[in-house]
């Protein structure tokens, strides 16, 4: 699949996909998006790179370990958010919202603890999907 056209398009599309997925992640609480969707989109972008350039160019074999850490770390992050809720709020996964006034742009920003949980979800989905692809791709 290493055709020049495909590689060129991938080079154009994948950064957009990455940035868009991060955008989807952070707006998830207010508009369609969130950890699952963003995670899937990021992994779609990475899979695209994988398909276009194959396994050698990005040294996936050595980087696959990173994705194992990513999904285990994501799981841990979500769990720790829950634990934090337990210690701060009184029960497991208790969430909280904080409104912070940002000094430079002079706006009220809203921070929800659930967003951190969602970040964990994002890491898990992303890590699992990419690990899956690299595992299968290396299968001979």
């Amino acid at each position: 699949m290493t055709s020049l056209i495909f590689q060129t398009i991938t080079r154009l599309v994948s950064p957009i996909l990455m940035i868009f997925s991060l955008y989807l992640l952070f707006r998830g609480h207010q508009l369609p998006g969130g950890g699952f969707i963003a995670g899937l989109m990021t992994s779609a972008g990475l899979v695209l790179i994988y398909l276009a350039y194959g396994c050698e160019r990005f040294d996936w074999r050595n980087r696959s370990r990173f994705f194992y850490y990513l999904f285990s770390g994501g799981l841990a992050l979500s769990f720790l958010t829950g634990l934090a809720g337990l210690f701060v709020g009184g029960f497991f996964l208790k969430s909280g919202v904080a409104h912070v006034h940002m000094p430079l742009i002079n706006e009220e920003w809203e921070f929800a603890s659930a967003a951190i949980f969602d970040l964990g979800v994002y890491f898990v989905v992303c890590g699992v999907c990419v690990s899956l692809m690299t595992l299968l791709g290396e299968e001979r």
Partner: peptide, 17 residues
């Protein structure tokens, strides 16, 4: 359903492998 879709994906990947 959103969670079901994602879980379904994981299950399908598992079955395929």
């Amino acid at each position: 359903v959103l969670t079901a879709i994602v879980i379904g994906f994981a299950a399908m990947a598992f079955m395929l492998v």
